[in-house]
Amino acid sequence: MAVLRSIGRRLWQRLLASLPALFGVAVFTFLLMRVLPGDPAVFFASGPNAGQEEIEQIRREMGLDKPIPVQLVNYLADLAQGNLGRSMSTGQPVAADLERRLPASLELTLCALILALSLALPLGILAALRPNSLIDHGVRLLCTLGVCMPTFVSGLLLIFAFYYLLGWAPDPTGRLDVFVSTPPEVTGFLLVDAALVGDWEAWIAAASQLWLPAATMALFVLAPLARMTRASMLAVLTSDFIRTGEALGLSRRRVVLVYALRNALLPVITIMGIVFSTMLGANVLVEKVFSWPGVASYALDALLASDYAPVQGFVLLMAMIFVMVNLVIDVLYGLADPRVTVG
């Protein structure tokens, strides 16, 4: 109980502490978008032969004729009311667009993280148990490959191998095959929604669309997770309490999995937060390659179109997710390590 209360108090403090950072992010992105070359009014005018008057008209509608400080104040005032503005390219409110597309990105990122963890942990442990063995070198090679290949290259290679050559993966476009009916939206996560209504055909269809992009991203973050697991396992395996466990006759399994691994996971939890944030960034390319209807590809399109509001909304959303991820990591760490809550 006391543990939970102390975690709750820490969460609250962290949330408050993150507010100035979020404010800074909002202001900074706003200014950055204004310095970037390109005039949205010109871009969104009806055609290349639109007259100066029409452009001025659009500019006034968008509030771009006012001085930048005034625009900033207006933007912040809108933000305070939860209004992220309207996208010029989709014509929809940015908040609605993001809300619709976020589950796709989150589903992809989370699945990729789970996949990466389920590969990286065993590989890291094996490598640590037999340092400098064939397994260790194999893991090192795999990690090097994963980290040195950009995601759009590895994504394309995977598509080439599994879709074009082997035919194991479906057409790499979108979240669901066009001939499969979408399950009723509850969470927005297709796998969850399909499972909720027991529509296993849709579930399999969604999973088969998902695994290739997820694998692409997992490969990208395999290296930091596996290397961290290996390093921290190696350090823990030489510590005194492991020797105690051995000296008192605990089974090898228990020593490795309960005594060593749980301690070794502490730094891995920390790195997991960083990895998750990296993956959110890496999403942009993966979503493009796989035509994934997520927030990252949405923001990229908006950026190319000098559409201010979606980009600002996206950056703010990412910043908020980043804060949330760090909070979750904090809670996990507090639960995993009893020493933290005392200090």
Binding site: S239, D240, F241, T244, A247, L248, G249, R339
Partner: peptide, 23 residues
């Protein structure tokens, strides 16, 4: 393994480090 702990066991210097810190 069956001998250690049951027939012969050992205690160490620096007892705090010799115990698993998160158990």
């Amino acid at each position: 393994q069956p001998l250690r702990g049951a027939a012969m066991s050992m205690i160490f210097q620096n007892p705090r480090a010799a115990l698993n810190p998160i158990r």
